[in-house]
Write a protein that binds this DNA or RNA. Structure first.
Lengths: 148, 148
DNA sequence: ATAGCATGGTTGACGCGTCAACCACAATAT
DNA sequence: ATATTGTGGTTGACGCGTCAACCATGCTAT
């Protein structure tokens, strides 16, 4: 078969995969944002701040943990700071910056958690068979470190 | 188990699924945009114009086929028109608009096709087992019409 | 006749993402 | 001493997505 084109079935698989991810993921994100005013990025930032840093993390560590580049995170934190969800404080030790969750940010996160959990369960987990879970795990394993 | 929170394993599955989609999909899109200058949206528009409409489609049909709302498509077409990939022409029959691929758009699409195909094969298809394909198909089937 | 509604599309504002340029500072190489 | 490189972060421009408001036109119900 020509390696430079896809047959019907191959294209089908690609579109099904893309379509179901975007549909399911979109529903979860929409449910969260409608009920809490947080975007997916907001949630990721706040979650990591408390999970990994007990409320505060150095900006570069936060970026790494989210797999975001520093520019993207900088822009995002600027917006979040404006809304009072986090604050930034320069470190004395080096030129790094400490990102700190505010009490408002903490409440927003606490409020969002069960909503996100329910949405993930409803739109995603409840739709999965044991075989699906195995496939997801194995595929992630196989593609984890990247394809050369 | 509490329906309002996720355990370790459930969260794990969610993150693996999200992570591998975003990683694989991101690579495909990046490969295309770097080699052709087309975004995913550009490719989708051009592809549908020739596949479904032999080069031209009414704007609303195009929007439906992409699962985009009219505003999103309108903005996107404005940008594509500026780059010479498509043109728009009002219909006489009603107040609809005909979207027409230009020769430049056609060449860009023809150039992109094999690049996209190769990227999808390399980053996605080649990583799948038969079981993965079955899971993808079944999950899409199960969630197709939406979750009530 | 007119009020209401549906269809097909545009527009502006604003959040989000990426890229390239930039800045400050320190450590290292020439 | 000066140039280079690396780290940590900011900024502006611009493409992309969403939402709400808007416009024109035609159809339908009162």
């Amino acid at each position: 078969m020509d390696k430079n084109e896809l047959n019907e079935e191959e294209m089908q698989i690609w579109h099904l995969w893309k379509g179901s991810f975007q549909s399911i993921f979109g529903r979860v994100v929409k449910e969260m944002s409608e009920h809490t005013g947080l975007s997916e990025g907001d949630y990721g930032v706040l979650d990591r701040l408390v999970i990994f840093g007990n409320g505060n993390l150095r900006q570069q560590e936060l970026a790494d943990s989210m797999d975001w580049d520093k520019s993207r995170l900088s822009h995002h934190l600027t917006r979040m700071e404006k809304r009072g969800l986090v604050t930034r404080k320069p470190l004395e030790t080096d030129r790094g910056v400490q990102v700190i969750i505010t009490s408002k940010g903490k409440s927003a996160l606490d409020e969002a958690r069960p909503i996100v959990a329910k949405a993930i369960r409803k739109y995603f987990l409840d739709q999965l068979t044991a075989q699906d879970m195995e496939s997801i795990t194995m595929l992630a394993e196989r593609t984890k470190t990247g394809v050369q």
